[in-house]
């Protein structure tokens, strides 16, 4: 990675509203954030209590979805009831002009980093 690649625009989370969980389906919504670099987007999910083999990432059009099974059930008291959670699940709408085929992912310390290259589109203009 050269210095130019490190240049980034910090993005606010595109999905604040969807941080809230689905208690009936026992699904937690993971924290995530998207950063823009010169040639690519970096999407990161916080997935504690998860093993790499239990993460599933899918693309559909410009929507990326992740589902990850927790390695152990997570319980907490919410609204006076004890709720048990088994999964993390979230879908995020990505910017247009991305190269899905060259997308790579890395899982380290319970954080999933998805590097999504931008599609370079454009055409040259002839100068007379």
């Amino acid at each position: 990675m050269n210095n130019y690649d490190k240049f980034e625009f910090r993005m606010t989370s595109p999905v604040i509203g969807s941080l809230f969980d689905d208690m009936e389906q026992r699904i937690l919504s993971p924290l995530s954030y998207l950063r823009e670099f010169n040639n690519y987007w970096m999407l990161e999910f916080d997935l504690p209590l998860v093993n790499k083999k239990d993460i599933k990432v899918t693309f559909d059009e410009n929507i990326i979805s992740i589902k990850a099974k927790l390695k152990e059930e997570y319980s907490e008291e919410k609204l006076g009831n004890i709720t048990k959670f088994e999964y993390f699940k979230k879908s995020i709408s990505l910017p247009k002009r991305i190269d899905i085929k060259k997308t790579t992912a890395k899982f380290q310390k319970g954080r999933l980093e998805i590097k999504i290259p931008k599609k370079i589109v454009g055409h040259s203009i002839k100068i007379n």
Partner: peptide, 13 residues
């Protein structure tokens, strides 16, 4: 550590 991360996430929520 992992449970704490989820608990802190809940605090953020």
């Amino acid at each position: 550590i992992d449970t704490l991360r989820i608990q802190h996430r809940n605090l953020m929520e």
